[in-house]
């Protein structure tokens, strides 16, 4: 096992959060976890196909960042995109229906697990090739600046959050887009979810400088590392980065140190990660940790947390029923959506 990085310290006790906001974050994390567990079950029961990459363990990153955004801000994701879409507000039933290949899916059954889109929720997509979502996210951020500064629209202060993994931080698009974002002071958050493994390639074996957040400095951009298993810590750095972006002060690179509790995809035998490593990270489960935080600070009681879990279980059950009962796309529509006029 490679020596673990020391997680940055965060003074959670000094952080302020209302009970309502706490429950909102908790609900979003539980939604992500329950949704993914249901996906695993459906995949193994042969109801879901293709490559399915689950997000278990990383929930604090999605919830901490996306719940710090406004509904008119933009989110851009990768192939591990279910939970980002859910945090962005895409209804669970439409995400589940997409995974079932149904017409009611958020991409109308044409996209699948790695290609979740929703223009209604400014979800720019799940992008399945490494790094290719970063330039697209940059374009959304450029568009905000263009509307504000070239077209003189003062209300155009939308921020874009762009998620990707540690493996992507060695790809050219990462560096090219950091450069352009800093050069043009674009309102964007580059959120690296460093879960230590790019399928079977350990991060330390793939990069000459494992501390990804430090790569921001050469572009004159703030780079911060954060404990990605602590939603309060992620929320804190996200809020600061969003405020800076919205004020026209440019991009931020956030490196969230996190871990996926399952293999790369449901097809991954996951034989390379050590038991000790997995156990160490499982002990930091971000949902259990946030439950403890909420209870310790008397923000909510156990009954309120259970009510959230019960409600989300119902949401997942309803999503599954919706997905199973929805129609598949019509064969007559095979060519629909190739062109804008279709």
């Amino acid at each position: 096992m490679v020596q673990e990085r020391t997680l940055p310290q965060f003074q959670a006790s000094a952080a302020q959060i209302s009970p309502e906001e706490g429950l909102r974050l908790y609900e979003d994390m539980v939604l992500g976890r329950f949704f993914e567990d249901k996906c695993a079950e459906m995949y193994y029961r042969g109801k879901m196909f293709g490559f399915v990459h689950l997000y278990n363990g990383q929930e604090a990153v999605s919830s901490g960042v996306i719940k710090s955004l406004r509904s008119d801000d933009y989110v851009c994701s990768t192939y591990r995109d279910h939970v980002h879409a859910l945090s962005a507000g895409v209804p669970a039933k439409n995400v589940m229906a997409e995974l079932f290949g149904k017409e009611t899916g958020c991409s109308r059954g044409r996209g699948g697990s790695m290609h979740l889109f929703s223009s209604e929720h400014n979800m720019l997509g799940g992008f399945a090739f490494i790094g290719e979502g970063i330039p697209v996210a940059l374009g959304a951020a450029f568009q905000s600046r263009y509307r504000r500064d070239a077209l003189g629209d003062p209300s155009a202060d939308q921020v874009t959050a762009c998620f990707f993994g540690d493996g992507t931080s060695n790809n050219g698009q990462f560096f090219e887009c950091l450069n352009m974002a800093a050069l043009w002071k674009l309102p964007i958050l580059f959120v690296v979810e460093n879960n230590k493994w790019a399928i079977g390639m350990a991060h330390e074996r793939a990069t000459s400088q494992p501390e990804i957040y430090k790569k921001a400095s050469v572009f004159g951009m703030p780079g911060v590392e954060v404990d990605g298993m602590d939603v309060m810590a992620v929320r804190e750095v996200a809020q600061q980065a969003v405020a800076r972006a919205r004020a026209g002060e440019g991009p931020t690179l956030i490196e969230a140190l996190t871990y996926r509790f399952r293999g790369h995809s449901l097809a991954d035998p996951d034989e390379l990660r050590s038991k000790a490593e997995k156990e160490a990270w499982l002990a930091r489960d971000p949902i259990k940790r946030f439950e403890a935080y909420l209870l310790e600070h008397s923000l909510v009681d156990e009954g309120a947390l259970k009510a959230v879990r019960d409600r989300i279980q119902t949401t997942i059950d309803d999503a599954l029923t919706f997905a199973e009962e929805s129609p598949e796309p019509s064969p007559d529509d095979l060519y629909k959506y190739i062109f804008a006029e279709d």
Binding site: P135, L138, G139, A141, F142, Q143, Y146, Q173, E176, M180
Partner: peptide
């Protein structure tokens, strides 16, 4: 733009989407 064809093309895609 800087000389970064793949990235500025992707940026144009994102701008067009929005």
């Amino acid at each position: 733009t800087p000389i970064a064809e793949n990235s500025f093309t992707g940026m144009a895609v994102g701008a067009a989407m929005t």
